[in-house]
């Protein structure tokens, strides 16, 4: 193992009307949060296909943050409620896959809550940092065993490069 402290990579799904604007507002107000999160803009949290979350985990995210408008404040009236239902179900699926619950989090943030979103991101990053790298169902061990697998297989990064740190925190 190397000595570089673990820096998680987190994918955040945001709603175009609230949390993405909250992220913009955090920027405009120069509120600081850790660079471990990378945001994706959707039109609504209701657009979040659960497979997006699984895809992010499969591609190496250590955690996924889902965010949307507060219940009752959805730009599309009530689609965040539908997102919430799916989220609850997805949490079970993810737990069933052996992923700690703390790696999938839901945060409501209105367009005015730049400070709050930054605070929540910071919290999630700290929690995931404490959890350590996602070893999905013994993925690390499995990849060693699968070292002979073809290199284009998505779930099997080259065993030789493991456990290289995630790209974001590697300094030039």
């Amino acid at each position: 193992m190397n000595d570089t402290p673990f820096e998680p990579v987190i994918v955040g799904f945001t709603c175009n009307w609230c949390s993405y604007r909250a992220a913009d507002l955090a920027g405009t107000a120069r509120v600081k949060y850790p660079p471990n999160i990378r945001l994706i803009r959707l039109m609504c949290s209701g657009r979040l296909d659960p497979t997006f979350v699984l895809k992010a985990f499969a591609e190496g995210a250590d955690a996924v943050l889902v965010s949307g408008c507060w219940p009752g404040e959805c730009h599309y009236l009530e689609q965040n409620i539908k997102a919430l239902r799916r989220f609850e179900l997805l949490k079970r699926v993810v737990a069933g896959l052996g992923i700690e619950p703390g790696r999938l989090q839901l945060v409501w943030a209105s367009a005015a809550e730049g400070q709050r979103l930054a605070r929540e991101i910071t919290r999630v990053v700290e929690e995931v940092r404490a959890l350590g790298p996602l070893d999905w169902g013994g993925r690390h061990a499995a990849t060693t065993a699968l070292a002979a697998a073809p290199p284009d297989s998505a779930a099997a990064p080259d065993a030789n490069t493991e456990p290289e740190p995630e790209p974001a925190e590697v300094t030039a």
């Binding site: 820096e7 992220a23 955090a26 920027g27 405009t28 120069r30 509120v31 600081k32 949060y33 850790p34 660079p35 990378r38 930054a118 790209p167 974001a168 925190e169 590697v170 300094t171 030039a172």
Partner: peptide, 12 residues
Amino acid sequence: WVHTDKPAATAK
């Protein structure tokens, strides 16, 4: 605007 560490911000 939200990060301070230049190498980490560049990587992001």
